Amino acid sequence: MTSVDTQHRAGEPPSGREEMARRLLDSSATLSYDPATEVDWETPLDVGCHGASPEWSTLYGTDYWAGLTEEQRRELTRQEAASVASTGIWFEMILQQMILRDFYAKDPTDPAFQWALTEIADECRHSIMFARGAEKLRAPAYRPRRFVVEAGRVFKAVAFGEAAYAAILVAEEVLDVMQRDWMRDERVVPFVRTINNIHVVEESRHMKFAREETRERLKGAGWVRRQFTALVVAIASYVIVGSMVNRDVYANAGLDAKRAIPAAKANEHHKAMMRSSCAGLMEFLGSAGLLTKPATWFYQRANLI
């Protein structure tokens, strides 16, 4: 996934990028899952379980949460988990289109080209898995606001190079940390834990490549380009994180949305969870020169730093 077009010539030693792509291909061949058979889709939903770790709920730690029954808390986390899954589908569709555009008409013998197609295949399976999971959680189709959907159309059409791959990395890393908690939590309904485990294992490969592509694309980039890239990635991150939990989850969980939405927005516990989950990501962006002052403002607004 690079504009450098480092096509491997016969007789030349493979580049570090090629070697990484080959390792990822080998890993994918060794450890990948088929959600259609790995996830228990047949067992009815256990309403005695949460959809996500309660500590990750947008209302956890608030006075409103304290007044909820256990049944209401479990239903809220199920709706929130379904919303996160739906947001994941939306962004995975953007991701797939950006990767396809990036590799259009490039050398198909390049291991990176083959890895790109492998990653797209993974994302297709993940999107179907998330869709079936949300349905089993008895949730409606949560979609980002119309403005966000249209902004996504523009972003996937114009984002290129490090801006595309750094934005991909942000979305994947934010999901990764919370899903690692959910997949280990016995309070979470078993099929959701399986979904999270599959996603964490397979996305770890995607994140490695996105980091490498971001570094590769930024080699030799000047100050203006880095400033622009940093701002684009920060804005994209702000939009993605702000779309993860749809405002309709509260009403669909049987709560008072007029009370729940302001409580969630002001929830310091949830903000702290988001910041701690993104510490490694922010360190990487800083090392890549993408944590500029304007970008930091958006990350602060998104509670990522």
Rank of each mutant, 00 (worst) to 15 (best):
F209W: 15
K106G: 05
N197I: 05
A210D: 12
W90I: 07
V39M: 10
V177S: 13
F113P: 02
L137R: 04
N246D: 15
M178R: 12
F147Y: 09
E75I: 00
E202T: 06
L76H: 02
R101W: 06
R22I: 10
S204A: 15
A288E: 08
S15H: 11
I240T: 08
A29H: 13
W297T: 14
E70A: 01
Q300S: 14
Y33M: 15
W182C: 10
I198D: 03
W223L: 15
V245E: 00
Q300I: 06
I198R: 11
V239D: 02
T37W: 11
F284C: 10
P54Q: 04
A121V: 10
L290H: 03
G222Q: 07
T118R: 12
S53E: 15
A159G: 07
P144A: 12
Y299H: 08
V189N: 03
S276E: 13
L76D: 02
I305H: 02
W182H: 13
A264R: 03
L175P: 03
G16D: 12
A82C: 09
M207G: 07
P140F: 05
M20R: 10
K136R: 15
D181M: 15
F284W: 05
L95F: 09
Y165M: 08
S86T: 12
R138A: 15
E119D: 08
A230S: 15
R22H: 11
L231E: 01
V239L: 10
Y33N: 09
I195H: 09
H126N: 07
I198E: 04
P108V: 14
R143I: 10
V154W: 05
G11W: 08
Y165H: 14
Y250W: 12
S28V: 08
L117A: 11
S276Y: 07
T194C: 09
I89P: 03
R187N: 14
S277F: 08
H206C: 11
A260F: 02
K219H: 04
E173M: 13
I168P: 00
E12H: 13
R146G: 09
E71G: 09
T62V: 02
P294V: 05
Y165T: 05
R78Y: 06
R184E: 14
S237E: 01
S57W: 00
H8K: 07
V39A: 04
T214K: 01
R78V: 03
N246R: 04
V177I: 11
S287L: 11
R22N: 12
V158R: 02
L31Q: 15
R187V: 01
M93D: 11
M282Q: 09
A221Q: 05
T194R: 15
V154C: 01
S86R: 08
G51K: 00
M178N: 04
F191P: 04
V174T: 07
W297M: 14
A251P: 03
F228C: 02
E71Y: 02
